[in-house]
Design a protein around this nucleic acid. Structure first.
Lengths: 121, 121
DNA sequence: ATTATATTTCGTTATATGGCGAAATATAAG
DNA sequence: CTTATATTTCGCCATATAACGAAATATAAT
């Protein structure tokens, strides 16, 4: 029961849902997610921690960056099915064009550049 | 997007999940749900209102009682799929025996009797 | 070794949410 | 019509949670 509650609570925040959508096609590092969501780094870090705790995302380190990606095929069935539900129903038609533009910009921009921008703030 | 967020937020409470599980096999009136969850009537009413707002449950009135039931086949796909996810992964093996006993007692007891009990408190 | 940097953790604040009892409401029962 | 009753709404309180900035941390880069 607790694993299910952890999943449902992790999904109960709009920004966390958006982060999961952003990870649909590829991994992203924290500063890319920061850019996409428009939140403070500490806030994004906490949100991603909640998603990771629930098993919905995984992490890997590369260089100075930590990349977050959606949980893979070996994730528990409740996680896999929840992600399937989410991605099925949050297709492109339900995402605002503003969010789509932001996401395209994030995909296009080097993490190095984004991190430099955020360091300035 | 908002409909999805409403669903995920509605599912992000253990008592609400339990209420949905209780409704799996049959409709229940408020005082039966009160008995099962062991919460105040006003609390149960608010929880069920959230579930109804999210489209996860429907209501019908019979006599003095309002019966809550799971959303039906004509519910929107996100709702149907979310319920399918929940019921699939919250099968009997994941529910405590205490909860199972409570639920069996609730199924067995006439609403008339339960309501009288709760009126005394 | 030192410095730079991406990320996480911590502390604070504002807002949201779950729980309760009391009051209000809708309407069934007598 | 009046009374009884199941449920909902309201008001209050305690706790949880999202957001931010600053400090701490891990480790890559020099």
């Amino acid at each position: 029961m607790n694993d299910i509650v952890n999943i449902t609570k992790a999904l109960a925040d709009e920004n966390r849902l958006k982060a999961l959508i952003a990870l649909r096609d590829r991994e992203l590092c924290v500063c890319q997610i920061i850019e996409f969501l428009g939140l403070a780094g500490s806030t994004v870090s906490k949100h991603m921690s909640i998603l990771k705790q629930a098993g919905l995302v995984k992490t890997r380190k590369q260089g100075r960056w930590i990349y977050y990606g959606l949980a893979g095929r070996n994730a528990p069935a409740p996680v896999r099915d929840a992600l399937r539900w989410l991605l099925k129903h949050l297709n492109s038609g339900r995402i605002s064009s503003a969010d789509k533009k932001k996401l395209e910009k994030v995909y296009r921009t080097d993490p190095e550049v984004l991190c430099r921008i955020h360091r300035r703030k």
